[in-house]
Simulated assay, not measured.
Amino acid sequence: MSTAIATPKAANTAQDTVARNVKMMIEARELPKKDFAKVLGVSPQMVARKLRSDTTWSINDMQAAAAFLNVDMATLLQPNLTVPQIYGLGDNNDDGTGGSDLLPVNMGPRYLVMPFSPDLVGNSFISG
């Protein structure tokens, strides 16, 4: 009687890193995977396999993914992405401040709210 021993997949390969990063970015930004499949020129099933790292990423796949996600290819290979990188909020402007001129995809509106101050009661903005 023989026993099959499962050989674990090598951890932290470049393929795994790209798959994990692309998957995080697509999910965090709520981008449709079918649109990503069209960009890669593959079926949605093949995209699912790529995002699970079950199939390899070619240089062309990485280049298309980077363009789709508006990041450079080096970002896809970084083992530890920051939250701004995941949401595409890197330094996309030229002023050197590290900020972004881009708003995150599908983040919805943001509102500025003045904190409550008892001194404002009775003016034209707050009654009561």
Rank of each mutant, 00 (worst) to 15 (best):
I5G: 13
T7D: 01
T7N: 02
P8N: 05
K9A: 10
K9T: 11
K9L: 15
K9W: 05
A10R: 03
A11K: 12
T13W: 10
Q15E: 07
Q15M: 08
D16N: 10
V18K: 00
V18I: 14
N21W: 00
V22A: 01
K23I: 07
M24Q: 03
M24D: 04
M25N: 04
I26C: 02
E27N: 14
A28L: 09
A28R: 03
R29H: 12
P32T: 05
P32S: 00
K33D: 05
A37S: 02
K38M: 01
V42R: 09
S43N: 11
V47S: 00
L51F: 05
D54N: 08
T55V: 15
W57M: 07
W57G: 04
D61C: 07
D61K: 09
M62Q: 12
M62P: 01
A65Q: 01
A65G: 00
A67E: 03
A67F: 09
N70F: 03
V71G: 00
M73L: 04
M73K: 08
M73A: 11
A74H: 12
A74V: 09
L77M: 11
P79Y: 15
L81H: 06
L81G: 11
T82F: 05
T82C: 12
P84S: 08
I86T: 06
I86E: 03
I86G: 05
G88Q: 03
G88M: 01
G88C: 00
L89W: 09
G90K: 11
G90W: 01
D91K: 02
N92H: 14
N92G: 15
D94Y: 12
D95I: 14
G96L: 06
T97E: 07
T97S: 05
S100P: 15
D101H: 15
L103F: 13
P104V: 13
N106D: 14
M107C: 13
M107P: 02
M107D: 09
G108K: 13
P109G: 13
Y111K: 11
Y111C: 08
Y111V: 15
L112N: 02
L112Q: 06
V113D: 03
V113R: 05
M114L: 09
M114Q: 04
S117V: 11
P118I: 14
P118C: 07
D119T: 15
V121T: 14
V121Q: 07
G122A: 06
N123K: 07
N123P: 06
N123L: 07
S124Q: 12
F125G: 01
S127T: 12
S127E: 10
S127M: 11
G128A: 08
G128R: 06
